[in-house]
Write a protein that binds this DNA or RNA. Structure first.
Lengths: 238, 238
DNA sequence: AAGTGGTCTAGACCACCCA
DNA sequence: GGGTGGTCTAGACCACTTT
């Protein structure tokens, strides 16, 4: 957070969220910001580029940086938000149940998902259900490289694994690949979730990578269709 | 395509796709590339940042830029790829049927989606089905600001509207917001698609914006669940 | 003509990795 | 200690919009 461009980014973001720069208004020009923050224009531009990539502003040549409209509940969803973060935003009555937490040799299927080749790599399996307003609607199955998640306990799994990984273990999550499909419920889905009256299950497969480009987690998040919603913001890179 | 950093980007991308830089290998260092392309380091870095954002490489401090593995059919899907592009990639037997193409005053629902306030803005409606291997599995309902899509004909709609918009009308699509949910099929879905045996429909709502941040298109893409697949690549911006 | 963002340059110092 | 990427600077020229 000491980086100048991040400070400017956070600063402007806060001002946008506080309504100091309302939707459809222009931010101060790059030259003004350069003076305001006593920095170079390229550094200001780095901050503005970040705002643009995250969907907060649109830069228009010859005019300036316009603040974009944002539906409060839409963001941030694209990407890597954890369930805990979502829960805080939605503010509903949500509970997490930990069904499984163990470390063992992975099955062939999991070995394949995590691209493991040698046989001595142990994998930590965490299976949880998410209960919203009294109904079990999400089944999360996480698989981590064991040596990367030492000290993972049931109470952590009940709270937020990601917070633990980032804050305590200082793991630096870098990027993820997601695949969303719709499937028929498995026997496990029917046992773990309240699916009466539902014929499908939305499956989100998530492959998470660290800063050094190592794949360290595979997650299958299985949602009851009525409780599934995915929002994405994407810029076209010509 | 004259921009130096885009030339470098395209050049490296081609080399990656041709296997000159295989997965897990390192690209030449920024200093080497700077010399190779007779440019400054910041310009090289712009090209590498683009590659990184699009999921082709991972930059590792102190080491270099590693080429990431890519599943052939995965990319590019996140974001703004048109059906026509997807079709070319998948190479299946695909047909498009144009059910509706007309320009008129929009319904209240569409006015709301396109954030229209005055009553004189006309909207062009295009409804199409996509037939894959003989089955109608996707229903696309597009709504454009009429004055932005002059000259849109049925034969264009049968081919690729996006190609027409970008190549002929020179519209510059900038970004889009997507929302994916699962719903019960409507009467229109049942009539237009082959849904026997299916209980749900995947709905992708898409809001498309131009370079000047104006919302100019709203699309509802309704997929039969077995034919739906969404892939996303996302970097964590700390 | 003046102001805006888009690109590009030639340096600099830093943090990190590895031999 | 030498190489790597991450950040930052102080300029420059260009394309575009507005007055």
């Amino acid at each position: 957070m000491q980086n100048k461009y991040l400070v400017i980014y956070q600063d402007l973001l806060e001002q946008i969220e506080d309504g100091i720069h309302p939707v459809d208004s222009y931010l101060p020009s790059e030259n003004e910001l350069k003076t305001q923050y006593e920095t170079s224009r390229e550094t200001v531009r780095k901050a503005l580029t970040l705002l643009s990539q995250n969907g907060y502003i649109q830069k228009v040549r010859g005019k300036g940086s316009v603040v974009l409209p944002r539906n409060k509940f839409d963001f941030p969803v694209s990407g890597l938000v954890s369930f805990k973060e979502l829960q805080n935003k939605l503010g509903e009555d949500v509970q997490t149940h930990v069904l499984t937490l163990n470390t063992a040799q992975p099955s062939r299927h999991i070995k394949k998902q995590l691209l493991l080749e040698n046989d001595d790599q142990l994998v930590t399996e965490v299976i949880r259900t998410r209960e919203i307003n009294g109904e079990r609607v999400i089944l999360d199955k996480d698989y981590f490289l064991s040596n990367k998640v030492e000290g993972l306990t049931e109470s952590i799994a009940k709270d937020s694994i990601y917070q633990y990984l980032e804050d305590t273990l200082k793991l630096s999550i870098s990027f993820a690949k997601k695949e969303i499909t719709v499937e028929d419920p498995t026997e496990e889905d029917r046992l773990s979730l309240d699916l009466t009256g539902f014929h499908n299950i939305v499956v989100i497969k998530n492959y998470v990578y660290l800063d050094d480009a190592t794949l360290f987690q595979y997650t299958e998040s299985r949602h009851r269709p009525d409780r599934f919603r995915f929002v994405d913001f994407a810029r076209r890179h010509h």
